[in-house]
Simulated assay, not measured.
Amino acid sequence: MKKQERLERIIKILAPGDFVSGEELASEFEVSRASIATDIRKLASWGADIFSVKGRGYKLAHAFTPLDKDKIEAAFTSATLAPIRIHTCLESTNASMKSAHDWQQGEVLLADIQTHGRGRRGRDWVAPVGSGLTFSMFWRFDQGHQSLTGLSLVVGVAICRALHRLGVVDVGVKWPNDIYSGMSKLGGVLVELEGQLGSSAACIIGVGLNINLENQNLYVDQPVIDIASILNEEPDRNKFAGVIVSTMWETLQEFEAKGFSAFQQEWQSYDVFQGKRIALSMGERQVVGTGNGVDKSGALLLATDSGVESFHGGEVSLRGFAE
């Protein structure tokens, strides 16, 4: 058995949150206790919070339910469009999808653990082991790059639709790619494009959603929230994965047929900064005004002293502005 496979099996053995002795693990995998100790240190480097108690063994600080293909597919709200693939640990689902080829339309890659997840503008996506839902979806747009206007906003709408189906109604969006509950971040979207201008556009759509952070010590630059806190109960990660993936399939097909303009009003109904005083930073430039939704291309509309101005993505960032 390769070491990577052994590591993945160990984390699944520890997932229920019970003590497992080093002797049991060594016997299971026919390796030395020293090898198991080395494996535990490696798992800790992946972000697994494992503690050791003499005479009892190893225990994962926060139990979690591993992702399960059959359970995810059982939660689909529409016909299966493409295969889903699950890995216990990947550096990044987006990076792994980019490094391979021949993905089917709508195919999904999920990971229980991401060691180097990424958000917009190269930021790290922080997700302790088993605490979130992280996956990437492949989608090819035959009409090319010009048909992608507003794509990340549409994915946000799809996620909000799915969460509503799952009973999570206090959710919204922050332009251009964040999912919010109240004024705290619940998740995010990262869209990466492949292909040349003038040809079909292959997109890798990455999604990260906080499921149950369990008071983990996260080093992030903004308030965060999770599904467990909103519902006041332990969410079923597999059910959430199935409903969100299948809702994204439905919504992306609708987007291909109708474009972003068909989603403009719905996106604005979820906009947590609508009518609020906000500041946008573009390098050293900052513009302050009142959020006024988005136009039919998905550009942010900001009411300033100079009138209503529109802003596109790229290096634009958005934070709540306190006067």
Score class of each variant (00 low, 15 high):
Pro16Lys: 12
Glu24Asn: 10
Glu30Asp: 15
Asp39Val: 02
Asp39Ala: 04
Arg41Asp: 13
Ser45Trp: 07
Val53His: 01
Val53Cys: 01
Lys59Gln: 11
Lys59Glu: 05
Phe64Tyr: 15
Lys69Val: 13
Lys69Pro: 06
Glu73Cys: 10
Thr77His: 01
Pro83Tyr: 08
Ile84Val: 10
Ile86Trp: 05
Cys89Arg: 10
Ser96Thr: 15
Met97Tyr: 00
Lys98Thr: 09
Ser99Pro: 05
His101Lys: 15
Gln114Pro: 01
Arg123Ile: 07
Met137Ile: 13
Gln143Asn: 14
Leu153Gly: 01
Arg165Ile: 03
Gly167Asn: 08
Gly172Met: 03
Asp178Arg: 06
Gly182Cys: 03
Gly182Leu: 04
Leu186Thr: 02
Gly188Asn: 01
Gly195Tyr: 02
Gly198Trp: 00
Gly206Glu: 06
Val207Cys: 08
Gly208Leu: 02
Gly208Ile: 02
Asn210Val: 10
Leu213Tyr: 08
Asp221Met: 03
Asp226Pro: 07
Ile230His: 00
Leu231Asp: 03
Leu231Ser: 09
Glu233Pro: 05
Pro235Val: 11
Arg237Asn: 08
Arg237Ile: 09
Ala241Glu: 03
Ser246Thr: 11
Ala262Pro: 05
Ser269Tyr: 06
Phe273Ala: 09
Gln274Gly: 09
Ile278Trp: 01
Gly293Asn: 01
Lys296Ile: 14
Leu301Pro: 08
Ala303Gln: 13
Val308Met: 09
Phe311Lys: 08
Ser317Phe: 06
